[in-house]
Protein backbone atom coordinates (compact mmCIF):
# COMPACT_ATOMS: atom_id res chain seq x y z
CA UNK A 1 0.00 0.00 0.00
CA UNK A 2 2.69 2.41 1.09
CA UNK A 3 4.88 1.63 -1.87
CA UNK A 4 1.95 1.85 -4.25
CA UNK A 5 1.05 5.26 -2.84
CA UNK A 6 4.62 6.50 -3.29
CA UNK A 7 4.71 5.47 -6.93
CA UNK A 8 1.26 6.91 -7.50
CA UNK A 9 2.30 10.20 -5.91
CA UNK A 10 5.44 10.52 -8.04
CA UNK A 11 3.47 9.81 -11.22
CA UNK A 12 0.77 12.26 -10.15
CA UNK A 13 3.37 15.02 -9.54
CA UNK A 14 5.01 14.34 -12.88
CA UNK A 15 1.71 14.43 -14.71
CA UNK A 16 0.68 17.66 -12.98
CA UNK A 17 3.89 19.40 -13.94
CA UNK A 18 3.61 18.00 -17.46
CA UNK A 19 0.02 19.25 -17.71
CA UNK A 20 1.04 22.78 -16.77
CA UNK A 21 4.01 22.89 -19.10
CA UNK A 22 1.87 21.37 -21.84
CA UNK A 23 -0.86 23.96 -21.33
CA UNK A 24 1.60 26.84 -21.54
CA UNK A 25 3.24 25.32 -24.61
CA UNK A 26 -0.16 24.76 -26.22
CA UNK A 27 -1.28 28.36 -25.64
CA UNK A 28 2.00 29.82 -26.87
CA UNK A 29 2.10 27.45 -29.82
CA UNK A 30 -1.47 28.26 -30.79
CA UNK A 31 -0.78 31.98 -30.57
CA UNK A 32 2.38 31.65 -32.63
CA UNK A 33 0.68 29.59 -35.32
CA UNK A 34 -2.24 32.00 -35.54
CA UNK A 35 -0.39 35.21 -34.83
CA UNK A 36 2.85 34.94 -36.80
CA UNK A 37 1.24 35.15 -40.25
CA UNK A 38 -0.53 38.34 -39.14
CA UNK A 39 2.65 39.81 -37.72
CA UNK A 40 4.07 42.38 -40.09
CA UNK A 41 4.97 46.02 -40.30
CA UNK A 42 1.55 46.94 -41.57
CA UNK A 43 -0.13 45.42 -38.50
CA UNK A 44 1.85 47.76 -36.29
CA UNK A 45 2.15 50.89 -38.39
CA UNK A 46 -0.72 50.64 -40.89
CA UNK A 47 -0.11 52.78 -43.90
CA UNK A 48 2.18 55.16 -42.07
CA UNK A 49 5.92 55.17 -42.61
CA UNK A 50 7.41 53.29 -39.58
CA UNK A 51 10.22 55.77 -39.05
CA UNK A 52 8.00 58.83 -39.02
CA UNK A 53 5.59 57.00 -36.71
CA UNK A 54 8.40 56.13 -34.30
CA UNK A 55 9.59 59.74 -34.34
CA UNK A 56 6.00 60.77 -33.63
CA UNK A 57 5.90 62.87 -36.79
CA UNK A 58 2.85 61.15 -38.20
CA UNK A 59 -0.16 59.59 -36.52
CA UNK A 60 -0.85 55.88 -36.99
CA UNK A 61 -4.56 55.30 -37.57
CA UNK A 62 -4.91 51.71 -38.67
CA UNK A 63 -2.08 50.00 -36.79
CA UNK A 64 -1.27 48.75 -33.31
CA UNK A 65 1.50 51.26 -32.68
CA UNK A 66 -0.59 53.59 -30.46
CA UNK A 67 -1.87 50.61 -28.46
CA UNK A 68 1.68 49.30 -27.94
CA UNK A 69 2.89 52.69 -26.77
CA UNK A 70 -0.22 53.05 -24.59
CA UNK A 71 0.33 49.70 -22.87
CA UNK A 72 4.04 50.38 -22.40
CA UNK A 73 3.40 53.80 -20.84
CA UNK A 74 0.59 52.40 -18.71
CA UNK A 75 2.78 49.62 -17.30
CA UNK A 76 5.65 51.99 -16.60
CA UNK A 77 3.55 54.61 -14.83
CA UNK A 78 1.52 52.06 -12.83
CA UNK A 79 4.62 50.22 -11.67
CA UNK A 80 6.37 53.51 -10.86
CA UNK A 81 3.39 54.48 -8.72
CA UNK A 82 3.06 51.07 -7.07
CA UNK A 83 6.72 50.24 -6.32
CA UNK A 84 7.62 53.03 -3.85
CA UNK A 85 4.34 52.61 -2.02
CA UNK A 86 4.42 48.81 -2.06
CA UNK A 87 8.07 48.43 -1.05
CA UNK A 88 7.67 50.94 1.78
CA UNK A 89 4.52 49.17 3.01
CA UNK A 90 6.32 45.82 2.78
CA UNK A 91 9.23 47.19 4.82
CA UNK A 92 6.78 48.48 7.41
CA UNK A 93 5.05 45.10 7.61
CA UNK A 94 8.28 43.11 7.92
CA UNK A 95 10.38 45.39 10.08
CA UNK A 96 8.17 47.70 12.09
CA UNK A 97 4.60 46.41 12.42
CA UNK A 98 3.94 44.23 15.47
CA UNK A 99 1.02 42.63 17.24
CA UNK A 100 -2.48 43.81 16.57
CA UNK A 101 -1.53 46.39 13.92
CA UNK A 102 0.35 43.76 11.94
CA UNK A 103 -2.53 41.27 12.07
CA UNK A 104 -4.92 44.00 10.96
CA UNK A 105 -2.73 45.15 8.06
CA UNK A 106 -2.10 41.53 7.02
CA UNK A 107 -5.83 41.00 6.81
CA UNK A 108 -6.41 44.23 4.85
CA UNK A 109 -3.68 43.43 2.31
CA UNK A 110 -5.23 39.98 1.83
CA UNK A 111 -8.56 41.65 1.12
CA UNK A 112 -6.91 44.08 -1.30
CA UNK A 113 -5.26 41.15 -3.10
CA UNK A 114 -8.63 39.47 -3.43
CA UNK A 115 -10.56 42.39 -4.92
CA UNK A 116 -11.59 41.52 -8.51
CA UNK A 117 -10.08 43.83 -11.09
CA UNK A 118 -13.47 44.88 -12.40
CA UNK A 119 -14.23 46.28 -8.92
CA UNK A 120 -10.95 48.19 -8.95
CA UNK A 121 -11.95 49.47 -12.39
CA UNK A 122 -15.24 50.63 -10.94
CA UNK A 123 -13.33 52.35 -8.15
CA UNK A 124 -11.23 54.18 -10.76
CA UNK A 125 -14.34 55.15 -12.68
CA UNK A 126 -16.02 56.42 -9.51
CA UNK A 127 -12.89 58.36 -8.65
CA UNK A 128 -12.97 60.00 -12.08
CA UNK A 129 -16.65 60.87 -11.68
CA UNK A 130 -16.02 62.26 -8.21
CA UNK A 131 -13.12 64.42 -9.41
CA UNK A 132 -15.15 65.55 -12.40
CA UNK A 133 -18.05 66.68 -10.21
CA UNK A 134 -16.11 68.20 -7.35
CA UNK A 135 -12.86 69.54 -8.73
CA UNK A 136 -12.72 70.11 -12.44
CA UNK A 137 -14.98 69.17 -15.29
CA UNK A 138 -11.82 68.62 -17.33
CA UNK A 139 -11.26 65.31 -15.51
CA UNK A 140 -12.58 62.24 -17.28
CA UNK A 141 -11.59 58.60 -17.13
CA UNK A 142 -8.06 58.92 -18.45
CA UNK A 143 -4.54 57.55 -18.55
CA UNK A 144 -3.70 58.80 -15.04
CA UNK A 145 -6.84 57.30 -13.48
CA UNK A 146 -6.07 53.97 -15.18
CA UNK A 147 -2.51 54.01 -13.87
CA UNK A 148 -3.63 54.76 -10.33
CA UNK A 149 -6.23 51.99 -10.45
CA UNK A 150 -3.72 49.50 -11.87
CA UNK A 151 -1.23 50.52 -9.20
CA UNK A 152 -3.85 49.61 -6.59
CA UNK A 153 -4.43 46.32 -8.35
CA UNK A 154 -0.77 45.28 -8.17
CA UNK A 155 0.10 46.84 -4.83
CA UNK A 156 -0.53 43.62 -2.86
CA UNK A 157 1.99 41.68 -4.99
CA UNK A 158 4.72 44.19 -4.25
CA UNK A 159 3.86 44.54 -0.56
CA UNK A 160 3.78 40.79 -0.05
CA UNK A 161 6.92 39.99 -2.02
CA UNK A 162 8.84 42.70 -0.15
CA UNK A 163 7.51 41.58 3.22
CA UNK A 164 8.16 37.88 2.65
CA UNK A 165 11.64 38.31 1.24
CA UNK A 166 12.60 40.55 4.18
CA UNK A 167 11.13 38.17 6.74
CA UNK A 168 12.94 35.21 5.20
CA UNK A 169 16.37 36.72 5.81
CA UNK A 170 18.47 34.66 8.22
CA UNK A 171 18.61 36.23 11.72
CA UNK A 172 22.41 35.94 11.59
CA UNK A 173 22.53 38.26 8.59
CA UNK A 174 19.96 40.50 10.23
CA UNK A 175 22.31 40.99 13.18
CA UNK A 176 25.53 41.48 11.22
CA UNK A 177 25.20 45.20 10.63
CA UNK A 178 23.36 45.86 13.88
CA UNK A 179 26.31 44.42 15.80
CA UNK A 180 28.56 46.82 13.89
CA UNK A 181 26.60 49.84 15.06
CA UNK A 182 24.06 50.19 12.28
CA UNK A 183 20.78 51.86 13.08
CA UNK A 184 17.63 50.02 12.15
CA UNK A 185 17.17 52.05 8.98
CA UNK A 186 20.84 51.65 7.99
CA UNK A 187 20.46 47.90 8.42
CA UNK A 188 17.39 47.90 6.18
CA UNK A 189 18.99 50.04 3.48
CA UNK A 190 22.49 48.57 3.40
CA UNK A 191 21.92 44.91 4.19
CA UNK A 192 18.32 43.75 4.23
CA UNK A 193 16.94 45.43 1.11
CA UNK A 194 19.86 44.39 -1.14
CA UNK A 195 19.34 40.83 0.14
CA UNK A 196 15.62 41.00 -0.53
CA UNK A 197 15.98 42.45 -4.03
CA UNK A 198 15.46 39.13 -5.77
CA UNK A 199 12.14 38.59 -4.05
CA UNK A 200 11.01 42.17 -4.53
CA UNK A 201 11.91 41.89 -8.19
CA UNK A 202 9.72 38.80 -8.56
CA UNK A 203 6.86 40.85 -7.14
CA UNK A 204 7.53 43.66 -9.59
CA UNK A 205 7.62 41.18 -12.48
CA UNK A 206 4.25 39.80 -11.42
CA UNK A 207 3.00 43.37 -11.21
CA UNK A 208 4.29 44.18 -14.71
CA UNK A 209 2.53 41.16 -16.14
CA UNK A 210 -0.68 42.04 -14.36
CA UNK A 211 -0.59 45.70 -15.48
CA UNK A 212 0.09 44.70 -19.07
CA UNK A 213 -2.70 42.15 -19.32
CA UNK A 214 -5.51 43.62 -17.25
CA UNK A 215 -8.48 44.65 -19.33
CA UNK A 216 -11.28 45.10 -16.80
CA UNK A 217 -9.63 48.05 -15.08
CA UNK A 218 -8.67 49.96 -18.19
CA UNK A 219 -11.95 49.53 -20.05
CA UNK A 220 -13.71 51.34 -17.20
CA UNK A 221 -11.08 54.00 -16.71
CA UNK A 222 -10.14 55.47 -20.04
CA UNK A 223 -8.98 52.95 -22.65
CA UNK A 224 -10.73 53.44 -25.98
CA UNK A 225 -10.54 51.87 -29.41
CA UNK A 226 -9.10 54.88 -31.21
CA UNK A 227 -7.16 57.65 -29.50
CA UNK A 228 -3.72 57.70 -31.05
CA UNK A 229 -0.51 57.92 -29.03
CA UNK A 230 -1.19 59.08 -25.45
CA UNK A 231 -0.45 62.81 -25.48
CA UNK A 232 -1.35 63.70 -21.92
CA UNK A 233 -1.87 61.79 -18.70
CA UNK A 234 -5.34 63.33 -18.59
CA UNK A 235 -6.26 62.03 -22.04
CA UNK A 236 -7.74 58.77 -23.24
CA UNK A 237 -5.47 56.16 -24.75
CA UNK A 238 -5.26 52.86 -26.58
CA UNK A 239 -3.99 49.65 -25.04
CA UNK A 240 -3.24 46.18 -26.40
CA UNK A 241 -5.47 44.11 -24.09
CA UNK A 242 -8.39 46.40 -24.79
CA UNK A 243 -7.72 46.10 -28.51
CA UNK A 244 -7.67 42.31 -28.24
CA UNK A 245 -10.93 42.33 -26.29
CA UNK A 246 -12.51 44.77 -28.73
CA UNK A 247 -11.44 43.01 -31.89
CA UNK A 248 -12.31 39.51 -30.69
CA UNK A 249 -15.76 40.57 -29.51
CA UNK A 250 -16.77 42.34 -32.72
CA UNK A 251 -14.56 41.29 -35.62
CA UNK A 252 -16.13 41.61 -39.03
CA UNK A 253 -13.99 39.13 -40.98
CA UNK A 254 -11.22 36.57 -40.54
CA UNK A 255 -8.52 39.15 -41.28
CA UNK A 256 -9.57 41.27 -38.30
CA UNK A 257 -9.52 38.25 -36.01
CA UNK A 258 -6.00 37.49 -37.23
CA UNK A 259 -5.02 41.00 -36.21
CA UNK A 260 -6.26 40.09 -32.73
CA UNK A 261 -3.91 37.09 -32.64
CA UNK A 262 -1.10 39.29 -33.85
CA UNK A 263 -1.85 41.77 -31.08
CA UNK A 264 -1.80 38.95 -28.49
CA UNK A 265 1.58 37.84 -29.69
CA UNK A 266 2.88 41.40 -29.51
CA UNK A 267 1.50 41.74 -25.97
CA UNK A 268 3.36 38.61 -24.88
CA UNK A 269 6.59 39.82 -26.49
CA UNK A 270 6.15 43.18 -24.80
CA UNK A 271 5.76 41.48 -21.41
CA UNK A 272 8.88 39.39 -22.04
CA UNK A 273 10.78 42.54 -22.89
CA UNK A 274 9.62 44.24 -19.69
CA UNK A 275 10.59 41.17 -17.62
CA UNK A 276 14.06 41.29 -19.13
CA UNK A 277 14.36 44.97 -18.28
CA UNK A 278 13.24 44.21 -14.70
CA UNK A 279 15.92 41.50 -14.41
CA UNK A 280 18.63 43.79 -15.71
CA UNK A 281 17.58 46.60 -13.39
CA UNK A 282 17.67 44.17 -10.49
CA UNK A 283 21.19 43.04 -11.32
CA UNK A 284 22.29 46.62 -11.68
CA UNK A 285 20.73 47.69 -8.37
CA UNK A 286 22.22 44.72 -6.53
CA UNK A 287 25.62 45.62 -7.91
CA UNK A 288 25.21 49.27 -6.95
CA UNK A 289 23.96 48.39 -3.48
CA UNK A 290 26.78 46.03 -2.59
CA UNK A 291 29.83 46.93 -4.61
CA UNK A 292 29.59 50.55 -5.65
CA UNK A 293 27.89 52.56 -2.93
Amino acid sequence: MNRFFEIFFVIWSWLSALCLVGAVAAILGFLCVKGFPALNVELIFGNTEPLSALLLQKQVFDGLFPAIVGTLCLVVLSVLLAVPLGVAAGIYMAEYAVGYVKTCCDFLFDILAGIPSIVIGLFGFTLAVFLHKNFSDQVYPCFLISSISLAFLVLPYIVRSTQISLEEIDPAIRNTALALGASRLQNIIHVLLPRALGGICSGVILAIGRCAEDTAVIMLTGAVAIAGIPRSILGQYEALPFYIFYISSQYADQAELMRGYGASLILIMLCTLLFLVAFLVRKRIAYQAFYKA
Partner: peptide
Protein backbone atom coordinates in the same frame (compact mmCIF):
# COMPACT_ATOMS: atom_id res chain seq x y z
CA UNK B 1 27.55 48.71 19.59
CA UNK B 2 30.42 50.69 18.11
CA UNK B 3 32.27 50.42 21.42
CA UNK B 4 31.26 46.81 22.08
CA UNK B 5 32.09 44.85 18.95
CA UNK B 6 30.95 41.33 18.29
CA UNK B 7 32.20 38.39 16.25
CA UNK B 8 29.82 35.53 15.56
CA UNK B 9 30.26 31.79 15.46
CA UNK B 10 30.00 31.48 11.68
CA UNK B 11 32.00 34.02 9.65
CA UNK B 12 29.51 36.49 8.21
CA UNK B 13 31.23 38.72 5.66
CA UNK B 14 28.81 40.80 3.63
CA UNK B 15 28.67 40.10 -0.12
CA UNK B 16 31.01 42.94 -1.00
CA UNK B 17 34.72 43.47 -1.46
CA UNK B 18 37.23 42.90 1.34
CA UNK B 19 37.85 46.62 1.58
CA UNK B 20 34.17 47.49 1.68
CA UNK B 21 33.54 44.88 4.35
CA UNK B 22 36.09 46.47 6.65
CA UNK B 23 35.05 50.00 5.76
CA UNK B 24 31.36 49.19 6.31
CA UNK B 25 31.22 50.12 10.03
CA UNK B 26 33.01 53.39 9.21
CA UNK B 27 30.40 54.13 6.59
CA UNK B 28 27.65 53.36 9.10
Amino acid sequence: RRKVGMVFQAPNPLPMSIFKNIAFPLKL
